[in-house]
């Protein structure tokens, strides 16, 4: 097989069906297993990452463990992360973090779901490491000049997630209410969370 023919969407949709059928015929996978995988992926969303963030905001000991080892901290909340190494990077008043995978599309998908289209785009992958402030501005996030911006380039074996700054005006909020404030884009680092009240 060489390059895709012009009707590429239909071609690869048919190839998926063809390969799935062959694997079923050979007894390598069952239709039920494929469906279970699809359902499991549909169930994963950034709400899982948000749950970790809310816990970290409420529990300094948990936050310390999360910054020391993201995978163990996820597992502590019953969240599956697989064999990958997860590194959580903390935003502060002085430091803002953003994640990318310049080489492909590595993303903490077990905690955030499948990455958005733009995360995998040439524009984002090429430019966020060269002109991160400009890229963030394209997402509507303008960082003050005195805030240091750190860009983290993921690999197939090592994924990052951002711990956003806890919004002001949320003293005394419980974890569920805090978790509801956390957006996917804040966990990637292209957005900051607005202060409340």
């Amino acid at each position: 097989m060489s390059a895709a023919p012009s009707d590429s969407a239909g071609y690869y949709r048919r190839m998926q069906a063809a390969v799935e059928e062959l694997l079923i015929l050979k007894g390598i996978v069952t239709p039920a297993e494929v469906q279970r995988q699809v359902d499991a992926m549909d169930a994963r969303s950034y709400k899982r990452g948000a749950q970790m963030v809310a816990r970290a905001w409420c529990d300094p000991a948990y936050k310390a463990r999360m910054l020391a080892g993201g995978s163990a901290a996820a597992e502590e909340l019953g969240l599956e992360v697989g064999p990958l190494r997860l590194i959580v990077v903390e935003n502060t008043a002085r430091v803002h973090n953003v994640i990318v995978c310049t080489l492909c599309s590595c993303y903490p998908r077990m905690l955030l779901g499948i990455p958005p289209e733009w995360y995998k785009s040439r524009a984002y992958r090429s430019r966020v490491v060269r002109a991160p402030r400009a890229v963030l501005a394209e997402f509507g996030t303008v960082l003050p000049d005195d805030v240091e911006l750190r860009v983290h380039d993921s690999t197939a074996d090592m994924r990052y997630m951002v711990l956003p700054l806890r919004p002001r005006g949320t003293d005394g909020w419980d974890e569920a209410r805090l978790a509801a404030l956390v957006t996917r884009d804040s966990l990637i680092g292209v957005a900051r969370l607005p202060d409340q009240g």
């Binding site: 998926q16 494929v34 992926m41 499948i114 958005p116 040439r122 090429s126 060269r130």
Partner: peptide, 28 residues
């Protein structure tokens, strides 16, 4: 694939709903 740092266009915030066959590629 090694495109970090190369010139490229503006970031457009595309959000694409994955089709059934795309999810099944992921599952495979």
């Amino acid at each position: 694939h090694d495109m970090g740092g190369l010139p490229a266009g503006r970031c457009e915030r595309d959000e694409h709903e994955y089709e059934r066959w795309e999810k099944r590629v992921d599952a495979l």
